[in-house]
Simulated scan of single mutants.
Amino acid sequence: MQLSHEQQRDFEAAAFRRLLTHLRERTDVQNIDLMNLAGFCRNCLSNWYRDAADEAGIALSKEESREIVYGMPYDEWRERYQREASADQKAAFQDNRPKDH
């Protein structure tokens, strides 16, 4: 099957929106867990979103892109849902962390 450029873009956008919804619902999954298992987290997504905006010539702040991904201001999300990482989580992060973080 051959998708048009517009179809591919629309399907990718729909998948991204579904991913955001899923991550917003799964507040029990911490960013460090995502980083340790998948090598990216909500903050990575917000950085990639901001990079795409920058490429399109649209200025988007770090805080604005994080609010898009988290569905609320980042500081509010952290206060509500972020827990202190365990020693094991921190050690795994040091072992698995991408070089650009």
Rank of each mutant, 00 (worst) to 15 (best):
L3M: 15
L3T: 03
S4M: 03
H5K: 15
H5M: 14
H5G: 06
Q7E: 15
Q8C: 09
Q8L: 12
R9M: 10
E12M: 13
A13Q: 14
A15R: 08
F16I: 00
R18L: 13
R18N: 13
R18Y: 13
L19P: 11
R24C: 07
R26C: 15
V29K: 10
V29A: 12
V29N: 11
Q30G: 07
N31H: 03
N31V: 01
I32F: 08
I32M: 11
L34Q: 11
M35G: 07
M35I: 06
M35D: 08
M35A: 09
N36W: 09
L37S: 12
L37W: 03
A38G: 10
G39C: 08
F40E: 02
C41P: 04
R42T: 03
R42P: 11
N43M: 06
N43S: 13
C44Y: 12
C44K: 06
L45V: 06
L45K: 04
S46N: 04
S46E: 03
D51G: 01
D51W: 05
A52G: 12
A52Y: 07
A53P: 11
D54A: 13
E55G: 08
E55M: 14
E55Q: 15
A56I: 00
I58T: 12
A59W: 02
A59P: 00
L60Q: 11
S61V: 00
E63C: 04
E64H: 05
S65D: 03
S65C: 07
S65A: 14
R66V: 00
R66I: 00
R66S: 09
R66P: 00
E67S: 12
Y70Q: 06
M72Y: 04
M72V: 08
P73R: 01
P73T: 00
D75P: 03
D75M: 10
D75F: 04
W77V: 02
R78C: 10
R80W: 00
Y81Q: 02
Y81N: 07
Q82Y: 01
E84S: 14
E84F: 13
A85R: 00
S86P: 02
S86M: 01
S86G: 08
S86A: 05
K90P: 00
K90A: 12
A92G: 06
F93D: 07
D95I: 06
D95C: 08
P98C: 14
P98A: 14
H101S: 14
